[in-house]
Amino acid sequence: MKPADISTLPKIMVAPNGARRTKNDHPALPMTVHETVEAAKACYSAGATGLHAHVRDSTGTHVLDAHRYLDLLSEMNAAVPQMQVQITTEAVGKYSPGDQRQLVRDVVPKSVSISLQEMLSDGQPDRAHAFYRWAFKAGIAVQHILYSTEDLMRFSEIAIRGDIPGNQHQLLFVLGRYRADQQSVVSDLDPFLEALRSVEGNWAADWACCAFGKRETECLVYAVQNGGKARIGFENGLWNRSGELARDNADRVKDLVSALGD
């Protein structure tokens, strides 16, 4: 079987668990490495070609644990080698930028997502820039998580300077992060699109978006219609476009595939 291509983002990437939700939120939410791999297999069959992966410790708590990530990557390579696997460095308020950088150095994954805000939060941009240059030389595909248009413009400034090297960058626009009810709407994407147009020509963007709540599918269809890609799954939303609770992550992928077909 042909290994996954990391040079571009998959059209549909599934985020099956995230850092915070548990089986109390949905019994089909994967918590262990084995459950995550089984969910990924089902989602691949449903139409997702990428996995955005979080790992948990024995208590179910989100951790940045190199050994657990290496176990997951090994199992995914055996089970679904065609599926791109992207590990996360999400801080959840307890990990420092240094911890995040060390995780990536220890795992050396093919693909990783990193919040620009989090990576620059310690006021040591030179260390962050050195890390980005190292990751580029190591051939690691970094998807930069951007929560606002301010994040996007800041990213563009750094990329133009060359402190985030490369001519094409993988981005994730997070829709509705700062809404009190965490319910994204389609129009949340428009400011990102406008800001992206303003920096076009300085570098190329391979971008996707994620959305929270019951309009997740609608928001992701709008992203694809506007040239983007989609990250879907129980990390952000538990409901299909009908308003009904999804059976599992594969059901969310099927819902999006159906909506894109419509």
Rank of each mutant, 00 (worst) to 15 (best):
T217P: 12
K110C: 06
M1F: 12
N202Y: 14
G227K: 04
M119T: 00
Y222E: 13
L171W: 08
D262F: 11
P10W: 04
A39R: 14
G233V: 05
N17K: 04
P10G: 06
D163F: 01
C210D: 10
C210S: 11
K229W: 02
V142K: 03
D65K: 09
Q100D: 00
V186W: 07
G201T: 11
P191T: 09
F173H: 15
A39Y: 12
S242G: 10
Q124D: 04
E244T: 09
P125K: 00
E194I: 07
R241D: 08
A128K: 03
E118D: 13
G98M: 01
V112I: 03
W239P: 01
A128L: 02
M83F: 01
P125C: 02
L29D: 13
Y222G: 06
Q225L: 08
S184E: 12
Y69N: 14
V80F: 07
A141L: 02
W207Y: 13
I114Q: 04
F136G: 00
P27R: 12
A195P: 09
V253T: 13
A211Q: 04
L220D: 02
A53R: 08
E200D: 13
K110Q: 12
E200M: 10
P165H: 01
S148P: 05
I114E: 00
T59N: 14
L103N: 01
G93S: 05
T217G: 03
A195C: 08
V63T: 15
Q82F: 00
V55S: 10
E35Q: 11
E118Y: 03
M119R: 03
Y222P: 11
A4P: 05
L116Y: 10
A66C: 15
T59Q: 15
V14S: 05
D106R: 04
V199L: 09
Q86H: 04
A39S: 15
R161H: 08
Q117K: 14
D65P: 06
S96V: 05
S74N: 08
P30N: 02
S115Q: 07
Q102T: 08
H129F: 15
H34Y: 10
E118A: 11
T61H: 14
F136R: 02
H67G: 12
V108W: 07
R21C: 07
R231G: 05
I145A: 10
Q225S: 06
V174M: 05
S187Q: 12
D181T: 14
Q168C: 13
A15V: 08
P81S: 07
V85D: 00
T217Y: 01
H54E: 14
V224R: 09
N77G: 15
W207A: 06
C209G: 11
R68I: 15
A78V: 10
N240M: 04
L73Q: 08
A135P: 07
I145T: 14
K94N: 03
Q183C: 04
Q82A: 13
L238R: 07
Q117H: 09
A53S: 15
R101L: 00
G233K: 01
Y178M: 09
F155E: 13
L171P: 08
V55H: 12
F212M: 07
M119D: 12
D190L: 06
G139V: 00
K214C: 03
R133V: 01
F136P: 00
A246C: 05
L193C: 13
L260Q: 06
G237H: 06
R56I: 10
L29T: 10
D57M: 11
A46C: 09
V257W: 09
D57I: 08
